[in-house]
Simulated scan of single mutants.
Amino acid sequence: MSEHPKKPNPIPNSLVDLFVTDILQKNGISKKDIKDKITDDKKQAIKELVEDLSKQVESFVNSNSNKGSQK
């Protein structure tokens, strides 16, 4: 066996798309509205936010994996 713990599978993009689409529909927002009204600055801010959250999640998962392997 490998000494490295198995990394959990990342959340599939299709699942993320489903959740986002569902939330937007519940709030009466269509994809066309988003494409027409969002500015380039907001797009960049959202991309940076997603990257930051991804890093935080990866760090959290890795720290929990390390704690579990020490027991």
Results as ranks from 00 to 15, higher is better:
Val57Leu: 08
Leu15Gln: 11
Leu15Met: 15
Val57Pro: 02
Val50Tyr: 08
Ser63Asp: 08
Pro12Gln: 06
Lys43Leu: 01
Pro8Arg: 04
Asn64Asp: 13
Asn62His: 12
Ser30Ile: 00
Ile46Phe: 05
Ser2Met: 07
Ser59Gly: 14
Lys67Leu: 08
Lys32Ser: 08
Pro12Ser: 02
Ser54Gly: 13
Pro12Glu: 02
Phe60Asn: 12
Glu51Arg: 12
Ser63His: 06
Leu49Trp: 13
His4Lys: 15
Val16Asp: 05
Lys6His: 10
Pro10Leu: 00
Gln44Pro: 11
Ile34Ser: 01
Asp36Tyr: 03
Lys6Leu: 06
Lys37Arg: 13
Leu24Trp: 06
Pro5Glu: 02
His4Tyr: 15
Leu15His: 13
Ile23Asp: 12
Asp36Gln: 06
Lys35Trp: 01
Lys31Met: 15
Val57Gly: 09
Ser30Asp: 02
Val57Arg: 13
Val50His: 10
Asn9Ala: 14
Pro10Tyr: 00
Thr21Ile: 03
Asp33Pro: 05
Ile29Asp: 04
Asn64Ile: 08
Asp41Thr: 04
Asn27Lys: 07
Asp33Lys: 04
Asp22Phe: 10
Lys31Gly: 14
Lys37Cys: 09
Ser59Asp: 15
Asn27Ile: 01
Lys37Gly: 14
Lys71Pro: 14
Lys71Met: 14
Thr39His: 00
Ile29Pro: 10
Thr21Lys: 05
Ile46Leu: 03
Pro8Ile: 00
Glu51Gln: 09
Lys7Phe: 09
Gln44Thr: 09
Val20Lys: 05
Leu24Ala: 05
Lys47Tyr: 14
Ser63Phe: 08
Asp41Lys: 03
Lys42Leu: 03
Ser14Phe: 09
Ser69Gly: 10
Asn27Tyr: 04
Glu51Asn: 05
Gln70Cys: 09
Lys42Phe: 11
Leu15Phe: 13
Asp41Met: 02
Lys35Tyr: 01
Leu18His: 09
Ile29Gly: 07
Glu58Asp: 12
Ile23Lys: 08
Ser63Tyr: 10
Pro12Lys: 04
Ser63Cys: 04
Pro10Phe: 00
Lys43Met: 04
